[in-house]
Simulated assay, not measured.
Amino acid sequence: MWQSLFQKTLHKFSLQVEQAYCLRERYKHHDCRLCSDACPAKALKTEAHSLQWDKSKCTECGLCCYLCPTQVFRLEAEQLQKVEQALLGKETACFSCQKQAAPESDVIVPCLEALSPEILMPAFLRNIPVQIYWQPECCQSCNFSFHQEKLRGWVAQWNCFSGNRFQVEIIHRPELKKNKPRDFSRRDFFAFTKKQLTVKVRSLLSDSDSSSEISLQNKVPLSPKRVYLKNLLQKNPELRAQNLSPQLARLLRLCTINVKEDCNFCDRCTALCPTGALRIAAAESSLQLFFEPVKCIDCGICTAVCPHLEREELQTLEQWDCTSLLKESKLLPCPACGEPVPEGAALCQKCQAQQEQEKLFTSLNNDLWL
């Protein structure tokens, strides 16, 4: 009885969409299509540089929640929270899709396309061996777009990166599963339902509070996936020195940013950075441009809007969770108004804008008298 109730509670969720977090909403030229390309119900469209969600078509499969890098989609029961609960009492974690999984024993995801090293990290943090189970013939008749070679590729690269520490095994036959069905006690049930009730109450309170609406000025918070990666590195510092392949770095959306000498602190990159990985801070007599790699999701917006920034592949994770100072510039008085400006800047932004307006008005006035 308790196990049946627990299963019903575990799998009940509803999808919430926060469009202000979407990269297309943040930067009109961004071409992210991860959610719309993967949606099996065609409920998501990325047209006219914005995200369109057709709730009537949505089946709440949850695949978009796993793929979106900016947490646009949120489940009432978060995906990593469900993984945590599915690991209760497990000696081995076997991940499988909802079509092929054994509900009483497997860790279920909507589709194996949703898997990434971060989704497996709750198991790694508990030193639980990981298996991924799928039957290729079953995937051929599925309406989800699952790329088998992509999964095989990143699993091989992760196994190489982690050495013998966190190996992932791909299996195709159910008899090779090493996991055992979990047995829920009353204590497990009440602890979990109490936690879920707290989440639901907070969600209701936040939804009823109009002042908590998210705008484009709000930065995207650090994702749970990043928190798990950070915790994994803290618990296993030897992984920091391991060579990171370019393919694995792109899958994990890891990179670093360098700045050229001619940066003028225009603030465009920091204003458009969706996560706040780039920020400008004013010291007593200087301006400083900082970069926090742990917040960066490798969206490419900063390098697209600023010619003074360069993206670079991340080779290792040694300095990944350390904030770096990209550039520092002395503050000098603006020749026109006396406000502090970075060294090398002809005018402050306000005076520069005013100067450009005067030039525009002069040009229009000359055209009228011609």
Rank of each mutant, 00 (worst) to 15 (best):
R253G: 05
P221T: 01
L244Q: 07
L229P: 03
V168E: 06
F265P: 08
Q217F: 07
R186K: 05
L254C: 08
F192A: 04
V201Q: 09
R240I: 01
L251G: 00
E261K: 15
N179L: 03
D207K: 14
T198H: 14
F190M: 07
D188A: 02
T270R: 01
R202P: 01
E175V: 10
R240L: 08
R186F: 10
F265G: 02
P246T: 12
L289Y: 06
A281Y: 12
R182E: 07
I171G: 03
L254P: 01
S285F: 06
N164E: 15
L252P: 03
T270W: 04
F190V: 13
S285N: 13
K177Y: 06
I257K: 04
H172C: 00
E213A: 07
R182I: 01
S285H: 09
L244F: 07
E213Q: 14
K219H: 08
S212Y: 11
L232N: 05
V227I: 15
C266P: 08
Q242A: 13
R173Q: 15
K225A: 15
C266F: 03
E261D: 15
R240Q: 12
N179H: 10
R250S: 14
K194M: 06
K235D: 10
C269E: 05
R279D: 07
D209A: 11
E175C: 06
K177L: 03
S285D: 14
F166E: 08
R253E: 12
F192R: 02
S208W: 12
V168C: 03
Q288M: 10
R268W: 07
K200T: 09
K180I: 10
L289N: 09
V201L: 08
V220P: 01
V227R: 07
C273N: 05
S285L: 02
A277Q: 00
R279S: 14
L287T: 03
F184P: 08
H172D: 13
A277Y: 04
S203W: 03
S162I: 05
